[in-house]
């Protein structure tokens, strides 16, 4: 009896989860399929739900229109550099906030956190004029720097760093490591899952970042994928096959990164959200 009830529960649960997963993934399936069709086929009724024949022509058009290889390369470099630097800066700051007593610590930490509440539309123009004064318009510096110090990253790292045993740090000091050496050689290696979680977030953020790169970059050769895709959406004559292929290309690398790092990701989020 219990066995039977268990089986039914199991089937129901599984069916529910499958249905939910189907709803989550269906738009992706449709996007990938649409990337192999022409615009006319995409809008046809009944809809085309099987792969079409236009993948190669869409790819050729996309390459000709936005220089696909080039923008994918730009996006990748920007996202990788950004991720490394941000994760490192966040870890440093998070470590100090979690493991040191110092004057103004809580005030500064709170000051950092509260900025999350300000909508970015409000600060776009002053930020842009700061970049202009620095002479950084149309450079990758301008794309990267504003979010290098990232409130969410600092928060997540501080929460995680609280789990680092104080004895471990002291052991490092006794062994004659410099403070920075202790951080590099002892603290960081013990933080791998949290660093991986933050890395996914930051990579996602920079890879998908749209509004800011759009306003600071003027040269199409320097565009990132979202900006290049957006330039395909004009007033008329949108080639949807091409656009869907671009959208698919913009999604695949993130999927790959997430698949590789997902275990660490979950345990990293965990400590970020529970403690504190």
């Amino acid at each position: 009896m219990i066995e039977r009830k268990n089986l039914i529960a199991r089937i129901l649960l599984f069916a529910g989860l499958i249905a939910g997963a189907f709803l989550s993934l269906a738009p992706f399936y449709w996007m990938f399929i649409a990337a192999t069709h022409s615009t006319g086929e995409i809008f046809a009724l009944p809809p085309n739900l099987l792969p079409g024949k236009h993948l190669l022509s869409n790819l050729a058009n996309l390459q000709a229109e936005v220089g696909l290889a080039r923008v994918v390369f730009n996006s990748t470099i920007l996202a990788v550099v950004y991720t490394i630097v941000t994760v490192f800066l966040s870890a440093m700051a998070g470590y100090a906030f979690a493991k040191f007593q110092f004057r103004g610590r809580d005030a500064i930490f709170f000051g950092v956190l509260i900025t999350i509440m300000v909508p970015y539309q409000a600060t776009l123009i002053p930020l842009f004029s700061t970049m202009a004064k620095l002479g950084w318009i149309n450079t990758y510096k301008a794309v990267l720097t504003p979010n290098l110090a990232n409130a969410f990253g600092i928060f997540l790292m501080r929460q995680n760093m609280q789990a680092v045993p104080t004895e471990m740090i002291e052991a490092g000091r006794i062994d004659g490591c410099s403070e920075f050496g202790t951080f590099m050689r002892i603290v960081l290696p013990s933080m791998r899952p949290a660093l991986a979680a933050l890395a996914i977030y930051m990579f996602m953020f920079q890879w998908n970042n749209f509004m800011w790169p759009l306003v600071v970059l003027n040269d199409p050769k320097m565009y990132t994928i979202p900006v290049a895709l957006s330039s395909l959406i004009g007033l008329s004559r949108i080639d949807y096959g091409q656009l869907m292929l671009g959208a698919s290309v913009s999604t695949l690398p993130i999927m790959a990164v997430f698949l590789i790092l997902q275990r660490q990701f979950i345990s990293g989020i965990l400590s970020g959200s529970v403690k504190g």
Partner: peptide, 14 residues
């Protein structure tokens, strides 16, 4: 996109 860029730049005097 063009309007967003132009507006931002005009407003910042860039």
């Amino acid at each position: 996109d063009l309007y967003d860029k132009v507006t931002t730049a005009l407003a910042a005097g860039v």
